[in-house]
Design a protein around this nucleic acid. Structure first.
Length: 438
DNA sequence: TCTGGGGTCCTAGGACCC
DNA sequence: TCTGGGGTCCTAGGACCC
């Protein structure tokens, strides 16, 4: 099995750690980062975890107690996190021959070395990320991705491991005792529903799942869970995604937001849809794609028990695949216009693009284009955004910048709330960190 | 017109991930 | 008053074909 070790590196409390990088006064203090609209907690520093704050908790429910406990809250600053993530990934890429970026804060690396040499490389990489970027990471190493995930959790939960846990075949007996102590719902790929079904069969912990009959698991559940069973045995069977992602092309593009205050009028919904459609178009053009279907939806709050939950969805099929923001904005509004129920109080809306094709492959015969006055508006808007930043030019509300400093504040009263936003030090000249020498 | 088996493709929905 | 925003993959079932 040597030469086949998989390394999983991921950041500790990534968003909260990013906030600390440019504000050292947060070091050692309970910090939480909130989702859009300052809705719920999505990242917590170690100290905030000790206070018992759970991820996903609505901020308004705990704000009073948390503030009393000295917790510092920040609005999510994805521009900053994406920038620090890119630096971190690039630094890690230099330590191993092969990297597969899995999410904004974690990546798989492949090690060609034995367990001992791999452990040394991991310790060096961890130190380099900590001193070079300022982000603490944890590392798990094992013969399969699923086991590497478990090892990574183990490293995080056990400070005496110094952030690096390495398992190989030689430690099989030890791994078994660890798996016996891990509840099945903490295994990668086992969510809420599967947990309930597995528990009903008497499979409570990771060791029991590992020792279950793969054929039975496949029959009762799926090949995915069968794969998890094999992975827990140290047999790598999950595909490497890094090649598949080479073109960075996705199968669908979704842009949806919650409003800071409910919307009742279709005019407001259609303004929001136009904004989201242009955002989706920008991502579509970035991956050199065209879309064939434009979906739009809006929904009321699922948490309001007094009012009926309303969720409306519509879809427009385009005559020809397109990446034009006017065509797609219009299609999004038309998809919903006739289904719209004026009695609803809508708190979210979104636009989804599907039927994506490669722009270089699709050609309409000359003279048969659906939209003969093709204005290349998308490319122009992209260039304006590149030179002058977001919200400087666009169709409808996408060209309006509100009085706040947030780029996505349209000035509309449903615009996203981000009251506790930190500076985007690494991507904006006018928001750079200031250092005082005394 | 009836009958049967087997294959492919597409879509909606469910489950999972961070 | 106030509860995120993206994605992926698999499966079942229907339409269609030979």
């Amino acid at each position: 099995m040597s030469g086949k070790l998989i390394v999983l590196a991921d950041a500790n409390s990534f968003f909260a750690s990013c906030e600390t990088v440019f504000d050292p006064s947060l070091m050692g203090r309970p910090v939480v980062v909130l989702s859009n609209n300052d809705g719920c907690v999505v990242s917590r520093s170690a100290q905030a975890k000790t206070l018992g704050i759970v991820n996903g908790t609505p901020w308004f429910k705990i704000r009073e107690q948390a503030t009393h406990d000295g917790v510092i809250a920040r609005s999510s600053n994805y521009e900053l996190y994406a920038s620090l993530s890119a630096r971190m990934m690039s630094l890690m890429r230099g330590h191993f021959p092969h990297q597969e970026i899995y999410s904004i804060d974690e990546c798989f690396l492949r090690s060609p070395w034995d367990a001992h040499t791999t452990a040394d490389a991991c310790i060096r990489m961890r130190e380099a990320v900590l001193t070079g970027i300022g982000i603490p990471i944890s590392i798990g190493v094992a013969p399969s991705k699923t086991l590497a995930k478990v090892a990574n959790h183990w490293a995080k939960d056990h400070p005496d491991e110094h952030g690096v846990t390495v398992w190989d075949d030689a430690t099989a007996d030890y791994i078994a005792t660890v798996l016996a102590a891990i509840p099945v719902e903490r295994v990668w790929g086992v969510g809420r529903h599967l947990t309930r079904a597995l528990q009903a069969m008497g499979i409570i912990n990771a060791l029991q799942l590992r020792d279950a009959d793969p054929v039975m698991i496949r029959r009762r559940f799926s090949v995915v869970l069968e794969c998890t069973v094999l992975e827990l045995r140290g047999i790598a069977c999950m595909a490497d995604q890094s090649d598949a992602d080479k073109g960075a092309r996705t199968d669908q593009i979704l842009c949806s937001r919650m409003f800071s205050t409910p919307i009742t009028k279709f005019d407001d919904i259609s303004q929001a849809l136009g904004l989201y459609a242009q955002n989706a178009c920008r991502r579509l053009r970035r991956q050199h794609g065209l879309c064939s279907q434009v979906h739009a939806f809006c929904a009321s709050s699922p948490f309001n028990v007094d009012k009926e939950y309303l969720s409306i969805h519509g879809c427009t099929t385009l005559q020809d695949p397109s990446d034009d923001p006017i065509t797609i904005s219009r299609a999004a509004c038309e998809a919903l216009r006739h289904r719209f129920d004026p009695h609803g109080r809508y708190i979210r809306a979104g636009v989804m693009l599907t039927g994506l094709v490669d722009a270089d492959v699709f050609h309409t015969l000359d003279g048969l284009e659906a939209d003969c006055d093709d204005h290349h508006l998308g490319a122009v808007l992209d260039e304006v955004t590149r030179r002058f930043g977001p919200m400087r030019a666009g169709i409808g509300y996408a060209g309006i910048r509100g009085h706040a400093r947030h780029d996505d504040d349209t000035g509309a009263d449903w615009s996203m709330r981000r009251d506790m936003l930190s500076s985007r030090c690494t991507t904006r000249w006018d928001e750079m960190a200031v250092v005082h020498a005394r």
